[in-house]
Every structure is written in structure tokens, then in C-alpha cells.
Amino acid sequence: MSAAAPGRRAPVAGVAVLLVCLAALLLMPLGVDKFYVQLVTKMMIMAVFAMSLDLLIGFTGLVSFGHAAYFGVAGYVLAYAAPQYQAASLWVSLPLAMAVSGLLALVIGLFVLRTSGVYFIMVTLAFAQMLYFVFHDTKLAGGTDGVYIYVRPDAALGEWAGGWKPFDLENFVHLYYVVLVLLVLTWIFLRRVIDSPFGRVIAGIKVNEPRMRSLGYATFRYKLASFVIAGTLAGMAGYFAAAQFGFVNPDMLGWHLSGSAIMMVILGGMGTLGGAALGAFMMMLLELLFQGLTKHWQLLMGGSIVGVALLLPHGLLGTVAAWWGRRVAAKDSERTDG
């Protein structure tokens, strides 16, 4: 919690680091070529996805192994919303995609939240797999092969604004900045949710759910709300992922993506939004690095995942924060001794 005594000065350092990162992200497209701008766009999209999962794993204590379902379904909504060779309106299709993902999370949440612990892990995975098969086995949207989205969503406003187009998603720099803004907005939104009374309740549920119930909290509703928020945000990420790649296929809902997302959250440090975002960046950098080394890069990735699970349970940020906490505590005790 933010009121934890020894870490008082850590948030200050955290904010500083955050501002530096933000400045770097703001300036980056000015100095590097298209490939890297697109790469970082992709990383930021995955960061939004990882943060949404962190709300469940790190803040509510719900280990969902099916989070890719909400990501992928939103991508399919965009594919459906876009008439072939024409652009869908961003202002219609984005809210629609997020609403569908959120609604899906609501329905699935009503089932999976009846379980807890290991059951919850297995059941979230199973439901995601069910959706995977819906898209994989039927001709709803191209089956196994997936569907191309030839034109990115159109940001033009309606007649009332004279059809003004504030930005063009076909332009990779515009897309970059739009995604950056969404990343920052997601961070602010989740930060506020976590600090709100609701956020304290889910934190309490994570620590001791039975006691929350005896204090008068209908915990199921809070968990469901958290599940729906996370699903909706995952949908937003999935929408932009589909828009950027110009392609959706069933793997977008697959369990490998769900597994990768868990890895991102833990690698960066769960229960810290910045950690989840950092984890997404690191994970994709690792992927790039390993792919450059060998065609059997999954071996290295799998090994890294095993290593993180065994050696880095608190993730990069968690480990740094613990080290910082110890340092501050040591300084404090020096001062009181002297």
C-alpha cells in the first residue's frame, strides 16, 4: 500500500523514472526509423494488455489464464466492423469492440468467478479455449486462416465537425502517438481505480476474501467489476493490435498469448502498473533478441520463463523496490542511531 512506512520516498523516485520514460517515449519517433516506431507501438499496445491483466493478478488476486480471449475478440469485432477494402469509423468501432469484450468478460465472469484458486486458472483457460474454437472451427471469420483488415480505422469525425480528421491511423507516427496517449490514459485510469474505495476493496479481497465478506462486502460483485474492467481494457489493446497488424486469426485468443501476458506481469513485477508495462516491453525485447539468435528461440524464451518463476518472483520492479526499501530503512536506522 502507498501508506507502507519505509517506502515513503520510493514513489518520488518512481515518479521521476516514469517521467523520464514518458519523455523518452514522446521523443522517440523523432530520432529512429519506421521499424522501431512500429515496434514500440506494438510494445505499448502489449503494455496496455499487460496492465489490464495486472488489475486481475496483481491487484485482485485473480490468476486468469484466458485473458487473450478479450484481446482477440475485440480484434475480430474490428474485422467485422470494417467493410472490405474500406475503413471502419474509429469512433464507432472502438467503443463497440471494447463493449463486446467487456460484455464477454461479464458473461464469462459470472461463470468463472464461482470458482477460485486452481479451478479459476483452469476454467478461465477453458473458456478462452472455447472461444478459440468458435473462431477456429467455424467460418465466422476465416476459420484457421483468419481475416485481413485492409484499411485501418478512420478517425474522421461526423458531419457536425465537418468531417474533420484529427489524426490518420495509416500514418505510423500518428498511430504511435495515439497508442502512447492511450497507454498514459490507461495508466492514469487504473491508478485512480486502484486508489479508489473500489481499489481498496479488491486489494482486501486479494489478501483475505472471507474477512472482506464478514466486513459486509459482497465480494463477488467487486471481483466481477474488476474482471469486466480488465476485459474491456484488454479489448482496447486487442483492437489496436488488430488495427496495427491488419490481420486477425484465432491465435489472437490463444492460450500462448494468455501465458505470455502472465509472464509480462510477473517479469515486470505484479501489483505495480509500471511493472506490468515494463514487463511487456522486456518480454518483447527478449523475443526479438532470441529470435535473432536462433530459430529455436522458444527454447530460450521457455528457459527464461522458468528462470523468472524460480528466481524473480517479485519481478524487476518488485526486486528493485524491495532493494530500495531496505536501503531507505537502513538509512533511517542509521539516522535514529546517530
Partner: peptide
């Protein structure tokens, strides 16, 4: 979950 997922990839 994380570790055994890593094992699958390996």
C-alpha cells in the same frame, strides 16, 4: 502456472 508454461515452450 508460469513455470510449467515455460516448460511447455522448452
Amino acid at each position: 502456472v508460469l513455470l510449467t508454461y515455460g516448460l511447455i515452450l522448452v
